[in-house]
Design a binder for these strands. Sequence first.
DNA 1: TCAAAAGTGTTTTGGATACACCCATGG
DNA 2: CCATGGGTGTATCCAAAACACTTTTGA
Lengths: 250, 250
Amino acid sequence: MNEFNEYFKSAFTVDNVIFGFDEGDLKVLLIKRGEDPYRGKWGLPGYFVYPNEDLDTAAIRVLEELTGLRNVFLEQVKTFGSVNRHPFGRVITVAYFSLIKISHYTLQPSSIARKAKWHSVSEVTGLAFDHDEILKACFHRLKWLVRSRPVGFELLPPKFTLTELQHLYEAILETSLDKRNFRKKILSMDLLIDLDETQEGVAHRPARLYQFDRNRYEELLSEGFSFELKESKKKERTTERAASSSPQTA
Amino acid sequence: MNEFNEYFKSAFTVDNVIFGFDEGDLKVLLIKRGEDPYRGKWGLPGYFVYPNEDLDTAAIRVLEELTGLRNVFLEQVKTFGSVNRHPFGRVITVAYFSLIKISHYTLQPSSIARKAKWHSVSEVTGLAFDHDEILKACFHRLKWLVRSRPVGFELLPPKFTLTELQHLYEAILETSLDKRNFRKKILSMDLLIDLDETQEGVAHRPARLYQFDRNRYEELLSEGFSFELKESKKKERTTERAASSSPQTA
DNA sequence: TCAAAAGTGTTTTGGATACACCCATGG
DNA sequence: CCATGGGTGTATCCAAAACACTTTTGA
């Protein structure tokens, strides 16, 4: 160790970008910081990695302390280690993101959890540290991942409608999709179980409910199947409401 | 700082998977370790990150000390931090990979460089630390990257033939490609400059030389162009020699 | 009976694949 | 003149894209 002692003076943390999906909108769980540095600012949930803890374990711990959830989709994205990113010293952080079913999330009793709140990803800005950049990197990774692997289901309740699924994809990919083509594509993959149930209590024709068939996916995978949604060069999603006849002050 | 002192006892390093392409084969530059731990084993080039050094800078430094090269393609891939991965203490390492033109590589005078040697990626095994795993992760990332962005050119000399380019893709993707279809696809992207020169001194019809048009790529990018080579579900590259008429014992 | 979202098929188009022969050079 | 890789075109197939109306429910 001798000559290398100089180097054993750093700390490292994990930060976890926790995504959820609600009201047709992609959300991220943020913490209002109650202590320095950046007191009062919103930031990503994270903490120092314990001396005897693996990185993934630390990320799982942070997630569980906040949400009570275990066995959740979680993936390492990128490590941020600019010299001056942390005022306490040299701290590098390993960024993870996780996907949770927001309906399963319940406020935890821990003091940290009481400071947590969901924010629309598209509206988040001005976070503590370099967390804006971290969020951006994780969102970018999610965008890619959702087109290459069937992870979208991690964000939906166990039973969902095709329209909900489509809205999820539209929110993540920031695009609009054609209803018929989307359904054709998804159903042709043979990854959904038609539950033969329908929504109840909606003021319109109730939609069929589906479930993701994880076993079938594993099976297809081993046969060389590759989940793949094309990168659509389509128009940005717009707030589809042109100047109707709402009177404007001229 | 006070209460957090416990955490400021870790070190971190960068490891750099340096890829090159030669003799139709994807290579990686490894170091024969002259010191403990893992003395005598091959390992990835890497070193501690200096207290006032950014991660990327450290990776660039490691690369330059070894190869003398600057302004090289380099990308962070993943961070490895198992509790016991390093016998000296808690050391997490940030893995990078870089792509260099092997023809530009010349043996550096530094003592470290004298222990470096190119190895075929497909044959490497039994590296120091968790470097097998790191190499695997970087190779996997390269495989993905080469299909999504025109980075293959980083591994070729400035002037190359289409067949060389095809062989490069075949080596990285571990597959075989159809010559006519490959050419059609690549040329249709309008990213290559036909130099109107040909090979010299080859014992067959000399091939035309091409150059990657980086400016054109930037231009196309800004127009929304997306480089994309499909994931071919084709046969593994085989040593194309089936039982011809060689007699089998019946 | 109205509003609101669910559900459904066909045609067109473009890109991926499969495939085989002649060409230019050095030895 | 032979061996070696260079270079080229077409037909087929399949998946993506474009596109509009009817159905079911609650209010």
